[in-house]
């Protein structure tokens, strides 16, 4: 009876077996993916806990790039305002921008507050780290009521002045270089 059944429904049985095989394979893949996600989630939890362990740090924004989440972290104190990009891909070199809060005086009278960029380390080029950091800085500076952001392009970066000029101009900065193009200044007026 069993043999007759197998002969009569040979094709159907083969189809069922194929479907079972596919389901088992898909189930196996799904289990693997769940396991990976659990590990990933655990690593992200550790990263967030690490960021929040600093009293001056707060998560300002979140971006997703190539399946990896990037945390834009604001670090603000009385004297400075800094931004970092934390991600599982950046364990050693954290892309970051450091600014100092300054006041422009006319004699003894304070006129406006501005941010002075101390250093800008995008670490990897042409992947958008610089733009993420600068956009966060501009947005935050505007919301805090700063009049401008200024900075100095130092001779140590002179090999990249063309790139830097394009980058800062793209974000609305005015860029000026010295006569021999050995150094330069950047300026963005936020509240004109």
């Amino acid at each position: 009876m069993n043999i007759i059944f197998r002969i009569l429904f040979k094709k159907q049985l083969q189809d069922i077996n194929n479907r079972i095989f596919k389901l088992e394979r898909s189930n196996y893949n799904m289990k693997n993916q769940i396991q990976n996600l659990k590990c990933y989630n655990e690593e992200y939890s550790k990263l967030v806990a690490y960021i929040l362990s600093f009293s001056t740090y707060s998560i300002y924004d979140k971006k997703v790039r190539n399946d990896s989440t990037i945390f834009v972290v604001k670090d603000e104190s009385k004297k400075d305002l800094n931004f970092y990009l934390y991600s599982l891909n950046y364990r050693r070199n954290i892309p970051r921008v450091f600014t100092e809060k300054k006041i422009k005086y006319d004699g003894d009278i304070p006129i406006y507050t501005y941010l002075y960029i101390d250093d800008f380390l995008a670490v990897e080029e042409n992947i958008g780290n610089g733009s993420i950091l600068l956009n966060a800085l501009i947005c935050c500076a505007k919301s805090l009521g700063y009049y401008s952001i200024i900075g100095w392009l130092s001779p140590v970066d002179r090999e990249h002045f063309d790139k830097l000029e394009y980058f800062y101009k793209k974000h609305g900065f005015e860029v000026n270089f010295s006569e021999n193009k050995n150094e330069g200044n950047i300026k963005l007026i936020l509240n004109s």
């Binding site: 690490y50 050693r92 101390d118």
Partner: peptide, 14 residues
């Protein structure tokens, strides 16, 4: 102190 904050490697605990 500023350099320390900006350039001294932190022990990454994540």
């Amino acid at each position: 102190k500023r350099w320390q904050k900006m350039y001294l490697v932190k022990s990454q605990l994540f």
